[in-house]
């Protein structure tokens, strides 16, 4: 069981897997308070996620499963993380640096796709990474995180840095999405409205429109207690 017991089901709007701490918070209902340019950029993300054009079908199958494992998205509704990464790589909107012992980000992603397939088959005797059971995929990803994957495509990468690079891109896509803001209770774009209430210890700690948290849990203690970290 890798979701804490009692975590509320989303009641308004969409959260990934319909779980979150702010079940009545739908940040998209606030969009009329956003400036036009911001609304256009954010709504496009929700309404028309990009098609996969950079990755091949095989790469995309592997990498979707990888993104699902990193973001623990095993059921719908899912944020289509790989679509946004694909678009970033296709357009060459990279982050401004490349480690001397790493290839270009675009090549690194293809090598990670090939490497996950290679390790799933060669070391874990799976049919493929994407079709392996979730627990097995998590074992492979745990080895990836620790830089322990070897052989085949991994020889062309600094494995730990490849994990860092790909998880960074995955979180850039996931936490750019309003569904994730619903899950975590983020207020979202706030221009031109802004905030006047930002004290923690008095009545004015929340604007009337801001979400109410309905489930509180210290994640450090909980993930330790449940042995999922």
């Amino acid at each position: 069981m890798s979701v804490p017991e009692g975590l509320p089901r989303q009641r308004r709007g969409i959260a990934p897997q319909m779980l979150g701490r702010y079940p009545d918070w739908n940040v998209l209902e606030q969009s009329r308070h956003w400036d036009d340019k911001t609304r256009e950029v954010v709504m496009k993300r929700v309404e028309s996620p990009p098609h996969i054009l950079f990755f091949t079908e095989d790469e995309a199958e592997t990498l979707k499963a990888y993104c699902d494992t990193i973001t623990y998205q095993y059921t719908e509704p899912r944020i289509p993380v790989l679509s946004f990464i694909d678009e970033k790589l296709l357009e060459g909107r990279l982050d401004g640096y490349q480690y001397e012992d790493m290839p270009d980000d675009r090549d690194a992603w293809r090598l990670v796709a090939a490497g996950l397939e290679y390790s799933a088959r060669a070391e874990w005797a799976a049919e493929s990474f994407a079709r392996a059971p979730e627990a097995l995929r998590e074992d492979i990803v745990a080895a990836f995180a620790d830089g322990l994957l070897r052989g085949g495509p991994w020889e062309q990468l600094n494995v730990k840095r490849a994990f860092k690079l790909t998880t960074k891109h995955i979180c850039q896509a996931f936490y750019a999405h309003p569904w994730a803001w619903n899950e975590i209770g983020f207020g979202g774009p706030s221009y031109p409205r802004g905030y006047a209430a930002f004290g923690a210890d008095h009545l004015l700690d929340r604007e009337r429109w801001e979400p109410k948290e309905e489930f509180v849990l210290d994640p450090v203690q909980d993930t330790k207690a449940r042995g999922i970290d």
Binding site: T69, I70, V141, Y175, F186, T223, I228, D229
Partner: peptide, 20 residues
């Protein structure tokens, strides 16, 4: 959260706790 070594279910749970 990534730099502290969390991914998967733990990443999501740390992130849900963002406001704290």
């Amino acid at each position: 959260v990534l730099a502290d070594g969390h991914w998967g279910a733990a990443l999501r749970e740390y992130m849900r706790d963002y406001n704290h």
